[in-house]
């Protein structure tokens, strides 16, 4: 479960203070597939980053999987991200110099998992996204949809409880977008993974359990 209470986030430059999020409350029950929509710059990504512990709120409280994590130190946050969270990005963020399977095993590198076990679990994750035949290819040999499937495999290889996806279909055509969406829906259904997805695409959003709209850092629905 994700519980955000009274979250505000402001960015300060030399002269102006920009308010990205204002007193936002949001609860995502375990197993829910939630989508967040809103115009550019409304604070969607900031919200996702705060849930993902890669950005800190200026105010408010974050509870993830029953743990109050707002004031964790860097080390505990890193540990928590590694074990509980998975990330999917719009621009994939694969490491081009590493093979597909080496990309997928990345989260396991930061746990004490032996290399054989890492490989086994990475191949499993790739099978889950239907890419086991590309395990030893390199990212630049793959299509956009395939890259995003690798990114999903990387996000789920550590069996996280929560998956955070920042416009996962934003860089893909509608056909490939649908494919990715199918995979996410299946993960949510089969494994019960909680998924929070930021999207611009109304059609994708409608396939999820619930839709939250943001505008100027505030919830409008």
């Amino acid at each position: 479960m994700i519980q955000l209470s009274n979250i505000s986030k402001s960015y300060r430059t030399d002269t102006i203070e920009t308010l990205a999020l204002q007193h936002l409350n949001l609860t995502v029950p375990a197993g829910e597939f939630l989508s967040i929509m809103g115009p550019s710059g409304c604070g969607k990504s900031t919200l996702l980053n705060i849930m993902g512990l890669i950005d800190e709120p200026s105010e408010g409280q974050v509870v993830l999987a029953g743990q109050e994590v707002t004031h964790y130190n860097g080390r505990r946050m890193a540990r928590f991200r590694n074990e509980q969270l998975g990330f999917i990005f719009q621009s994939f963020h694969l490491i081009n110099d590493l093979s597909v399977v080496d990309n997928v095993e990345l989260p396991l590198l930061y746990r004490k998992v032996g290399s054989k076990e890492r490989k086994r679990r990475s191949l499993d994750a790739l099978e889950h996204v239907g890419l086991s035949n590309r395990a030893y290819h390199f990212p630049n040999q793959l299509s956009g949809g395939q890259k995003q499937r690798v990114a999903i495999a990387r996000a789920i290889v550590g069996r996280p409880n929560i998956l955070l996806a920042d416009e996962p279909t934003g860089n893909l055509d509608s056909h490939m977008g649908d494919e990715i969406m199918q995979i996410l829906l299946r993960l949510n259904q089969d494994l019960g993974t909680t998924i929070v997805m930021v999207t611009h695409d109304e059609r994708m959003a409608r396939k999820t359990h619930r839709l939250v709209r943001l505008s100027d850092g505030e919830r409008v629905s």
């Binding site: 993902g52 890669i54 860097g74 080390r75 890193a78 540990r79 991200r81 590694n82 074990e83 990330f87 990005f89 963020h93 490491i95 990345l106 989260p107 590198l109 930061y110 746990r111 990387r154 550590g158």
Partner: peptide
């Protein structure tokens, strides 16, 4: 790359 590594738990 560093961002991704850290997001996935690298200290």
């Amino acid at each position: 790359e560093i961002g991704v590594r850290k997001a996935f738990g690298a200290e």
